[in-house]
Design a protein around this nucleic acid. Structure first.
Length: 589
RNA sequence: GGGGACGUAGUUCAGCUGGUUAGAACGCAUGCCUGUCACGCAUGAGGUCGCGGGUUCGAGCCCCGUCGUCCCCGCCA
C-alpha cells in the first residue's frame, strides 16, 4: 500500500462523492471480464463498490485486473464517476457511482474459496464452520458481529450510567458439584488437583457484593459441559449483574431499561413495564415456565360435572383449551393434534366444536350432551370455536402427574399457535415469570434439589415452612422470557448465614459437607453480607433475537458444533505424551 | 444416553424397481468479447457416492455397523 491511506469503505460512496479521487481496499467479490473492459466488485464489511478497469485509463491497472481472482485482496485508486442512467444498479446502495481505476494494487492472492462469499447462505453449516474465516467475510455475518459489538457497548454504557461497575472474575476456579457439569483442567504444579471453568461467576459475584462492590456487572464467558442445542453452546456469554440492597421492583426496572436500550439498537420499541406472571399461573394456563404470550391461547384446569366422573376415568383436574374460530378444523387436523398430544405425554385427548346449532363432540356419547355443554361453556367457548381437552389416566392428581399434564398442554399450545399462525411476526412479548418454587423433588434421588440455585432466597413469609413443607416454598427467583425463550434468570440471594444453613439441610447437605464445599463462602456470609440479588442475561440469545436468528451460532464468531467440536481448529485434540506426563496424567482406555 | 433428518464433483442438489460409462447448475481452467453488475459465448478439467462389512451375477440405491453435521427429548441450579 506504500503511503496510501484508505479514504472510504466499499459501502460508502454515493453521488455526492462524484469527481473525488478515492482509495478503496477490500476483497474481489466478483470479476466481470468483457475483454478490454473489466468490472471488479470490491467488498469489505460495509458493502460493495463497482470498480472499472480499461486500458484507456490505465493499461497497468487493466492488466492486473486480468490477473485478479475471487477473494484477492486489492487496493484501488481512482475517480468516483457517476454512472449513466442506463447503467445504474438499483440493487446496490453504491449503485449510482463506480470507481475508475487509475491504480490497482494487488495486495494479496487467494485460493479459490470452497464456497461463494455471498450474503445468501446456501452452504452446509459444517463447511461454513470449517472455513469460518471465509464465512465471516460475508457482509451479513459482519453485520451480526457488529450488532453484537453495539449491544455490548450499550450494556456497558447503560450499566455504567446506573452506577454498575464491570469487574472481572476468575476463569480458573474450583469445581462445584451443584448444577451443570464442569469443564476441568489439571494443575501442573499440584498433581491430582484440577481447576474448573466457571458455569457462571455466581459465587464470586456474591463475594464482590460482600466486599462492598455495591453494583457489579460483567459481560462474561461461562462454560457448561452439558449437551448442546440451537440456543446452547459449551461456552457462552452472560450479562451478569448483581446489586446490593435491592428490591425486586428496582432490579426489574433496571433490567427493563437495559433491555429497552438494547432493542432500540434494532428499532424495536419495547413497552414497559413487562408483564409478570407467577410460575404457577404460567404452568396452569400456558403449560410452560417460559410461556410465549405473543398469541392468545390459555388452558383452564377443569373437572367433570358431577355424574360424569364415573363414566370417564380420567384424572381430575384435566385441562381445556378454547381455540377461537377453529370450529371448522378437519378430522385429520384433529387426529394429528391428538397424535402430538400423546407424544407429549397426555393420554386422553378430546374435542368439542361449537356452532349455531350447538355443541358437537364425540365426548357426548361417553358423558352425555349436557355434561359436554357444561364443559364447553366452562371453557368460555362461543359459536365457531373449538375446545380441546387434555388429560391423564393417572389415578392420583399428585405433583408429578399435574406437571406431566402441564408439559403436554404447553407443547400442544405452541403447536397450535404455530400451525394456526397465531403469532404475528414482529411481536416482542416480554414477560417476567416470578414466584418459582424453591425446591424440586427429585423422584429418582428421593430428595429435594434447588430449582434455581442453593443461594436463592425463599420468600420471607414462607420461612417457617422451610422444614415442614419444602415443596410449598416459593423462591424470590425470576426468569425473563421473550417470545417463549428464556433470556435471563436471577434471584434475590440469601444474605443470612442461618437461612443458608437451613437451605443446605433441606438439600440434604450435612454441615460437614456444606463446609467442605462452600466453607469459604459460608465464612464470607457471616462477615457482614448486605442484602443482594441479581440476574444473568443470555447475551448470545438476546443478540440472536435482535438479529432475527434462531441459532446463537449465527452471532458467535467462532462457535462449536453440537458435540462441542471446533471444526476450524479441530479442538479438542490429543496432546503429546510428554505434555500428559508433565501434568501427571495417563489416559485410561 | 435416546429419537428424527441428512451425508453423491469445490458448492448446492438430482440420481427411477439394484443393471452398461454417476448427471445438472454454480464455481474453476483456457480462449474470445468496451457497459457488465448472477455478464455472455466456446472448450475443458473435476467423483474414495462419509467410512467398514454384508447380501447379490451386479450396490450410489438393499441390510448391519460406524463416523460426522443439524433438530428434538433427557440433561442444562
Amino acid at each position: 500500500m506504500g503511503e496510501r491511506q484508505r479514504t472510504h469503505y466499499c459501502g460508502d460512496l454515493r453521488k455526492s462523492e462524484a469527481g473525488k479521487t478515492v482509495f478503496l481496499a477490500g476483497w474481489v467479490a466478483r470479476r466481470r471480464d468483457l475483454g478490454n473492459l473489466i468490472f471488479l466488485d470490491l467488498r469489505d464489511h460495509t458493502g460493495i463498490t463497482q470498480v472499472v478497469c480499461t486500458p484507456d485509463l490505465s493499461a497497468e491497472a487493466h492488466g492486473k485486473a486480468e490477473e485478479v481472482r475471487a477473494e484477492y485482496v486489492v487496493g484501488v485508486e481512482g475517480e468516483v464517476m457517476l454512472r449513466d442512467a442506463a447503467t445504474i444498479n438499483s440493487q446496490l446502495p453504491t449503485g449510482e457511482v463506480e470507481v475508475k481505476a487509475k491504480t490497482l494494487l494487488l495486495l494479496n492472492e487467494a485460493k479459490t474459496p470452497p464456497f461463494p462469499i455471498e450474503d445468501e447462505v446456501k452452504t452446509a453449516e459444517e463447511t461454513r464452520l470449517q472455513y469460518r474465516y471465509l464465512d465471516l467475510r460475508r457482509v451479513s455475518m459482519q453485520r451480526k458481529l457488529r450488532l453484537r459489538h453495539q449491544a455490548a457497548l450499550a450494556v456497558r454504557e447503560y450499566m455504567s450510567g446506573h452506577r454498575f461497575i464491570e469487574i472481572e472474575t476468575p476463569f480458573m476456579t474450583r469445581s462445584t458439584p451443584e448444577g451443570a457439569r464442569d469443564f476441568m483442567f489439571p494443575s501442573r504444579i499440584h498433581r491430582g488437583h484440577f481447576y474448573a471453568l466457571p458455569q457462571s461467576p455466581q459465587l464470586f459475584t456474591q463475594l464482590l457484593l460482600i466486599g462492598g462492590g455495591d453494583r457489579y456487572f460483567q459481560i462474561v464467558r461461562c462454560f457448561r459441559d452439558e449437551d448442546f442445542r440451537a440456543d446452547r453452546q459449551a461456552e457462552f456469554t452472560q450479562i451478569d449483574i448483581e446489586m446490593a440492597f435491592p428490591s425486586r421492583a428496582i432490579l426489574f426496572d433496571i433490567i427493563e431499561g437495559l433491555i429497552e436500550s438494547l432493542f432500540a439498537l434494532v428499532d424495536v420499541k419495547v413497552s414497559r413495564p413487562f408483564a409478570r406472571m407467577s410460575y404457577e399461573v404460567a404452568m396452569e394456563k400456558y403449560g410452560s415456565d417460559k410461556p410465549h404470550l405473543g398469541f392468545d391461547l390459555a388452558w383452564k384446569r377443569m373437572r367433570l360435572p358431577s355424574g360424569a366422573e364415573e363414566k370417564l376415568h380420567i384424572m381430575q383436574p384435566f385441562k381445556a383449551l378454547r381455540v377461537p374460530g377453529w370450529g371448522r378444523a378437519s378430522r385429520s387436523q384433529l387426529d394429528k393434534l391428538q397424535e402430538q398430544a400423546k407424544a407429549s405425554g397426555a393420554d386422553w385427548f378430546a374435542y368439542a366444536k361449537v356452532d349455531e346449532s350447538g355443541v358437537h363432540s364425540p365426548l357426548g356419547k361417553a358423558i352425555g350432551e349436557e355434561a359436554v355443554r357444561i364443559l364447553v361453556s366452562g371453557a368460555g367457548a362461543r359459536s365457531g370455536d373449538m375446545v380441546i381437552f387434555l388429560g391423564l389416566r393417572s389415578a392420583r392428581a399428585d405433583r408429578a402427574a399435574l406437571s406431566k399434564l402441564d408439559n403436554a398442554s404447553g407443547d400442544l399450545r405452541l403447536e397450535l399457535g404455530r400451525k394456526l399462525e397465531m403469532i404475528t411476526p414482529g411481536t416482542w412479548s416480554f414477560l417476567w415469570v416470578i414466584d418459582f418454587p424453591m425446591f424440586e423433588y427429585d423422584e429418582k434421588d428421593k430428595r429435594f434439589g434447588a430449582m434455581h440455585h442453593p443461594f436463592t432466597s425463599p420468600r420471607e413469609e414462607d420461612l417457617d415452612k422451610l422444614e415442614s413443607d419444602p415443596g410449598a416454598i416459593k423462591a424470590l427467583a425470576y426468569d425473563l422470557v421473550l417470545n417463549g425463550a428464556e433470556i435471563g434468570g436471577g434471584s434475590i440471594r440469601i444474605h443470612r448465614h442461618d437461612i443458608q444453613k437451613r437451605i443446605f439441610t433441606v438439600l440434604g447437605l450435612t454441615p460437614e459437607k456444606a463446609r467442605e464445599r462452600f466453607g469459604f463462602f459460608l465464612d464470607a456470609l457471616e462477615s457482614g453480607t448486605p442484602p443482594h440479588g441479581g440476574i444473568a442475561l443470555g447475551f448470545d440469545r438476546i443478540v440472536a433475537l435482535m438479529a432475527g436468528e434462531s441459532n446463537i451460532r449465527e452471532v458467535i464468531a467462532f462457535p462449536k458444533t453440537a458435540s462441542a467440536v471446533d471444526l476450524m481448529c479441530d479442538a479438542p485434540a490429543t496432546v503429546d505424551p510428554d505434555q500428559l506426563d508433565e501434568l501427571g496424567l495417563r489416559i485410561k482406555d
